[in-house]
């Protein structure tokens, strides 16, 4: 087995294990910590795909900024009594899991039954993953979406401040 296969296997197993850990942990802080590990595993998977820039952004934005926000809210709400609370395992749980397994099986049959034929990374993959290449495309071909997304972020900041600030009177 080559290094890439071993690396992919480790990262894939880590990503799935931490993903399962996110949804079965009773404690939201433990879920958040698992999710951070999940994001790191994904950044490693991006590296196996030669997408260095996105791996760096994944760690900076997801594992850094977004998860700090989530952990901050979890701590702020002080949900310490979560372990005493019983998550209800009704038929809904069984249906959700079985439908999920069914869909995965179906997709596996679809993908492996008729291979896509893409067994190697493209020759341009190493070049396309760099910050230079992405920056060039982002600031020429995708300049308008880039500006639009900055406006979206501004609106999101204003909206979240408006939502989270103390209400003056009882009208929500």
């Amino acid at each position: 087995m080559s290094t890439t296969v071993i690396l992919f296997s480790i990262l894939a197993i880590a990503a799935i294990a931490t993903g399962v850990s996110v949804i079965i942990n009773k404690n939201p802080v433990a879920s958040a910590m698992s999710l951070i590990l999940h994001f790191f595993a994904l950044a490693g998977l991006y590296l196996t795909l030669n997408a260095q820039f996105l791996a760096a952004i994944q760690i900076l934005v997801y594992a850094g900024a977004i998860m700090v926000l989530v952990v901050f809210v979890v701590m702020l709400l002080n949900l310490g009594k979560e372990s005493a609370l019983t998550e209800r395992f009704n038929p809904r749980t069984g249906i959700a899991v079985s439908m999920g397994v069914l869909l995965i099986a179906q997709l596996a049959i679809a993908f492996f039954g008729q291979p896509t034929g893409y067994n190697q990374l493209s020759d341009k993959a190493a070049l396309n993953g760099t910050a230079e290449s992405i920056g060039t495309v982002l600031f020429t071909e995708y300049l308008f979406p880039f500006e639009a997304i900055s406006l979206l972020l501004l609106v999101a900041i204003v909206g979240s401040i408006l939502l989270a600030k103390k209400q003056q009177k009882e009208s929500v």
Partner: peptide, 11 residues
Amino acid sequence: QTIPLEFYLIL
């Protein structure tokens, strides 16, 4: 690189 695309899609 030796991992085919299918494995990434299934993961």
